[in-house]
Design a protein around this nucleic acid. Structure first.
Lengths: 353, 353
DNA sequence: TTTATTTACGCAATCGTTACCATTTTCAAT
DNA sequence: ATTGAAAATGGTAACGATTGCGTAAATAAA
């Protein structure tokens, strides 16, 4: 019952010609007569011939597939990125093999090695929080494998990169909180080793300074696993709220941290924004349905995905090695909702202290 | 600079033996002397030899990859399913090629064809809402391609299937709403052509009947695109709330519909649960952070994914064609939160009418 | 010592496709 | 009529790995 897919040989046999002729006819070579071409094409259609991509991969040493390494698919930011990547890759006839690190360095190394051994033509990757050693990627990069970094990037490898303007995103969010009257803004960020963390915390600090405030370490916290481990967030909140001078606003710099903080604050009965204002990086699709509606810095994730594949495909399909690499920076969008909009407390508590 | 990955030939050349010897040594064949084996293995390690999976695919006519067709990655239910699938597939050395239909029949056909041409060893699929004609899958199934359906399944193809007990899920949710005092429960479901819709609406109807109520068509609505098109949901809510007898509770049967309804109700200033109680199928990871905290029927999506791959791999790796197919049914979990818990209105409005 | 059996390896085909290098046929130019 | 070039097609190696078959050498049995 199970019949195999038709091959070029079947066509050749059916028509009494050689496989070379069939191959050339299908690729519309000039050295095949129009009549033969016609015959071959008809026969191919009749047998429902589809070229075998695996054989092609072997021959051409390219798989028309690209590898993707993300933290976790079940995360809006990344699933939207994937959407952007897939849509373009699909159009160009590439497929995407998605792998997840769950913030583990070991997983990342395994993923990258797996993708390499699968013969992907290129790699799109956002680094795990545990990744300090980049040799697994450097090796591939040195061999000429096209790589594009996004979101969590590195300076150690010179190639295309796609990020949002993290500095601007948290600068604007911080400034917004200040305008709402916040005097002590805490920031809860991902691991301090991540590129995004550095930029986002820098934006936060700079906004404070611009408004005549000095950043203080007791208000700056890092969640090593970017909020994936809930207890990390809980502990940070605990610390913040046993401080002598408690924060009156919190800036969170990743999706999981943002929802984690929201969850913790609600559990502890801390009112938002009355007790603390809250603004955070997030790509949730329902910020307005949360309680309270959440002020978020939203990343153009789909566009980031699109940019990343476009750059990658450009590298893959370029004849000559690329020397000039681009760091493409997209703009995040600050969406203001009530979690950060403090009702004017008409002189009730003049300044906090 | 760009050096190619080591092949079996390189090892053979380096050692002055034939490729067959190398191949057999690496596969630990008994007809290779221990000394030679040792030599080969060492050399392989030294050259960092990795077998080329593409060549293997061509030879063995299997790709060690499986195809997955979902509605949309950026949907918690599906991304959790993917997590379940990936985790097991990865362990067994398979990779997963994910495609999305966005509820379009044409996309589904393209996806399936694409996966087939990529030589996947098996297929895991949840049907699109537009899919009435199954010939694209029947053809593959007839050729012997292992297929597992999940979530949106069909009776027309006899193979393994993985679903939740949809009937039970909506039965229990409906019963819960009744117990909370609801007298007119509306249901907003996906396209009536989907298997899940039939079961979920049936559970709803049966619960009503069990409690002495007759289901009425004016309270039963279908969103053809399962809430992906927001206006569909808006219109249904409009219809429901221009009814003479308005509903006092709403049961929604898919993630996007649930959030869509919540959004619409909030926009219209309809209070939950005071004006209408709300309960719905959803796999959001933050039901308790919504306003109001949402009563949901949660599907064990990760487990569903795990079950689906396990069944698929079992089919793929089975020597003999499988005759006995399983419909594995997992239990959904009703999580009660305040969106459905109506405060006792002490005699205020005795019965609504 | 001769034959039989085992051991350890090499050769070549195979998977589906392409590409280089023939070879044959056609037709024009001499 | 002879040669030359162009046009159309065929043969075959190659991509990387596996595997059935053949065979030389080593060992055992007669």
């Amino acid at each position: 019952m199970k019949f195999e897919a038709a091959t070029i040989k079947d066509i050749a046999k059916a028509l009494g010609v050689s496989t070379s002729t069939v191959s050339r006819a299908l690729r519309d070579s000039h050295e095949i007569s129009p009549e033969t071409k016609q015959l071959v094409i008809e026969c191919a259609e009749r047998l429902n011939y589809k070229p075998n991509p695996i054989a092609l991969s072997l021959k051409e040493k390219r798989s028309r597939s690209i590898g993707l390494v993300v933290t976790e698919i079940a995360n809006n930011f990344f699933s939207q990125i994937i959407n952007g990547i897939e849509s373009i890759a699909y159009d160009k006839g590439y497929n995407v093999i998605i792998t997840q690190t769950f913030e583990s360095y070991d997983r990342e190394v395994m993923d990258v090695q797996f993708l390499a051994s699968r013969g992907v033509d290129g790699l799109i990757i956002s680094l795990s929080t545990e990744t300090h050693d980049l040799s697994h990627l450097k090796a591939l990069h040195d061999r000429g494998l096209p790589i594009v970094f996004f979101d969590r990037i590195t300076d150690e490898i010179n190639t295309h990169k796609v990020i949002v303007d993290n500095y601007k995103g948290s600068f604007e969010a911080t400034e917004h909180l200040l305008q709402m009257g916040a005097k002590r803004i805490a920031v809860i960020s991902s691991s301090e080793f991540l590129s995004i963390t550095k930029d986002r915390v820098a934006g936060y600090k700079e906004a404070l300074k611009m408004h005549g405030m000095e950043p203080t370490d007791e208000l700056i916290h890092y969640s090593y696993y970017s909020g994936m481990v809930f207890s990390e967030v809980e502990e940070i909140i605990n610390k913040l709220f046993t401080l002598k001078h408690k924060p009156d606003a919190i800036l969170t710099t990743s999706d999981k941290i943002t929802t984690g903080v929201l969850k913790t604050l609600k559990r502890r009965g801390i009112r938002i924004p009355d007790d603390v204002a809250l603004a955070g990086f997030s790509n949730t699709d329902i910020p307005e349905l949360l309680d309270p509606p959440l002020t978020i810095v939203q990343q153009p994730s789909r566009e980031m995905g699109e940019a990343a594949v476009s750059l990658l495909l450009q590298m893959i399909e370029s004849k000559r090695p690329i020397r000039d690499f681009e760091k493409r920076m997209l703009s995040p969008e600050l969406q203001i909702r009530s979690s950060s909009v403090v009702k004017k407390k008409a002189g009730k508590k003049p300044s906090g202290k």
